[in-house]
């Protein structure tokens, strides 16, 4: 039961993020929703790599215990880096839209339609 707690957190965070993305009108808030979604997925990856009693896979002066496989950590790191690039690009879009449209309300960013 207790071991599933991180996964419960992951699902909760994903649901919160999707609710923000779908219901908030402000572009910045939608972006925050996306960032929360990213964090939830990262937490999911990290949870997969957790082994009770495992130690960090650093061979220098390593104590005689089982090491965890560093793959999930590497994945998460990569995913965080991609997340930074994503957030930066999204925010720069928001800046230009704010300048050109004078609004970051999603209902008013719809010059392209039909």
């Amino acid at each position: 039961m207790f071991w599933n707690l991180p996964l419960v957190a992951v699902v909760t965070l994903i649901l919160i993020a999707l609710a923000i993305i779908v219901f908030k009108k402000n572009l910045i808030k939608v972006f925050l929703g996306i960032v929360i979604l990213e964090s939830a997925v990262n937490l999911f990856l990290i949870t997969l790599g957790y082994r009770e009693g495992g130690i960090a896979p650093i061979y220098t002066n390593a104590p005689p215990a089982t090491m965890v496989l560093p793959t999930p950590q590497a994945l998460t790191l990569t995913s965080i880096v991609i997340g930074v690039a994503t957030s930066a690009l999204l925010l720069s879009f928001a800046i230009i839209i704010w300048k050109k449209y004078g609004s970051i309300d999603i209902d008013r960013i719809r010059r392209l339609k039909e």
Partner: peptide, 10 residues
Amino acid sequence: HSGNLHDYIL
């Protein structure tokens, strides 16, 4: 094809 981002995501 409303042009509304929320519709696309939904």
